[in-house]
Design a binder for these strands. Sequence first.
DNA 1: GTACAGGCAGTAT
DNA 2: ATACTGCCTGTA
Length: 307
Amino acid sequence: MKRSNEHKVVLFDPIRSINSGQVFLWKNVNGSWYGINGKEVLKFTVIKKPTINNKKIIATNEVEYQSFPKNELWENFFFRLNDDHEEVYKALSKDEIIYKIYQKYNGLRILRQDPFQCIITFVCASNTNVKRIRHMLTNISKKFGTKIIFDGLEFYLFPNAKELSNASINELTSCGLGYRAKFVKSVASDIESKMLNFEEIKRKYYFDSRKELVKLKGIGNKTADCILLFAFEKLDAFPIDVWIYRSLLENYYWLFDDIKKYLSKNKPTNNQYNIIGSRVREYFGEYAGYVQQYLYYHVRETSRRTW
DNA sequence: GTACAGGCAGTAT
DNA sequence: ATACTGCCTGTA
């Protein structure tokens, strides 16, 4: 689909990005946003919103960034400001459906998260809701993380693999993890014992990396895709939760015409998950992960939310 | 009370 | 390969 240059608005909206279901340990205090990312507390303050007129940026937004410990230009890394956003734009302009969604939520970015925290986050995220995920992660930080003071406020950093692998199942259960407690412990131990090598996961291609991840207890296809997209540089990872699944069948039914009669109504089987994933990757290309995030945000925004 | 939520693993077919 | 079930716990 061709688009004239005047529509090429590359916006960046940090608030929308952190509230799009990728991270769960951010909060607004006195007008600034604070978030736990591994062993850092990240902070940003929106000084001035961007000025947009007729879909053109007149003046870009002004955001102030700080962190504890001090990490210069963390925003470039965390918000992926140096991704090839021209190419991302191309993926998000593939057809009218996604282009409309892109325009509506322009500025939403994929976040580059601390790998260990990201893994634990999405192991905890199975079969539950945002509110409870936040509850579980907050409890884990408080119980096993280091307390620090930043801006006169109390924060608990996220524990690393070593700190968390020492936790007992009972302690984890008391964080509200339920049946996920044993998964978190096992995953933390596997990472601590280097059974899962982060550098290797980053280096390998999407499908090979995912094979490694799903070997761990508590990580299936969907969870692995979230981890790969948000922490391991796999921008072609395309997590398919029940929402995305239903949305794809509804809006992109023509991509699955030949197999439609075999597809389950609400939840894909592993095999269906893989087929659908490879087709959307084929269709949207190497930045399919960005498409997923926009699509996901859109379905959540347009459905009744309880968070 | 009961259904269900941003899945996974284990078992049976 | 698919179908079905149980799982913790909070919320509607």
